[in-house]
Write a protein that binds this DNA or RNA. Structure first.
Lengths: 161, 161
DNA sequence: GCAGAACGTCTGTAGAACAGAACATCTGTG
DNA sequence: CACAGATGTTCTGTTCTACAGACGTTCTGC
């Protein structure tokens, strides 16, 4: 259709926006929208060891996480508890209400995801998910600030301005 | 590593954020960051038939496009011209400076993209790009507001609240 | 006990999405 | 031609989010 078809960034953006839109629609009035869902998922299934670990995992700024959790806590979906081993850190734990809500949300999200992926065959959907997961795990492992200086130079080295 | 590995939305978000970060780094002081690059690409290679067409194609709000173009115009990379057929619409055209800059940016972006995709083999990279493109073209065609009511119900129908 | 680090919260700033109004221009109808 | 309505762009104002920095609390090593 256009020259942008060839652009990895463009395709990624289109798919990402479609996903966010469908997901925010699917979760309804859940505090935090699609991010609220991810927080709830992590709190229920991953037992994040601290609030900041959760931030890093979800790519959410720590100051934003504060009020997202405020909202989720106000809705009785999660609670913040002092970690017994380190009273500085807060453990984010899903409540029973939160777990129940998550089960419902999972069903809704499945619909939304199916809608976004509707353009691909079943096999292609599986391939795409597998590839993205491989890439995400790699990127997530490499990302944390890493040897930023090195990488910055590497990336910026396309050509001297 | 975590339960989120299985979540399509999480993997998509991680990859997207990694791409945006790498790209914004790679384009340097280009007005608009990674979006400026996409605008410049479209203006050079796609001859967008109007500003709003460009907005829709790139998923950028029209009020945001206004000042993004203001900045790009101020940097002499693009110009806005009245369309001869309809004086309401503005044609976004890359200047010679813009085209030169784009050639440089392309090289830089290639590095950034390679960095983001580093976790995959050459074949996997090609597969991922192809799948994303297929999906993006489909989503982009379906997206434009479409029969929203129908889709909203479809997505929200996971379970009655 | 104390200095320094880490965790979470709060404040302030900037970027961006979004809704709505305003203005210029086009299109269709009479 | 005059007019009403639609469309493209810009402007205004609100909200959400990212980000940087300061602060209080708590832990760690000396």
């Amino acid at each position: 259709m256009t020259a942008l078809d060839e652009d990895f960034g463009w395709t990624l953006g289109v798919v990402f926006r479609a996903y966010v839109k469908a997901t925010n629609l699917a979760v309804g009035d859940l505090p935090g929208g699609h991010r609220g869902y991810q927080i709830l998922t992590a709190a229920t299934r991953d037992q994040p060891e601290s609030q900041s670990a959760l931030c890093q995992q979800l790519g959410i700024d720590r100051t934003v996480m504060t009020y997202l959790l405020d909202d989720l806590e106000r809705a009785s979906l999660v609670t913040r508890q002092h970690a017994p081993t380190d009273r500085r850190t807060r453990l984010v734990v899903a409540t029973d209400t939160g777990r129940t809500r998550l089960a419902d949300l999972d069903r809704r999200l499945q619909h939304a995801e199916a809608h976004v992926l509707a353009g691909l065959s079943r096999e292609d959907q599986a391939s795409l998910k597998a590839l993205l997961r491989k890439l995400a795990v790699h990127a997530n492992a490499a990302d944390p600030v890493e040897n930023t200086c090195q990488v910055v130079q590497d990336i910026a080295a396309g050509t001297p301005q």
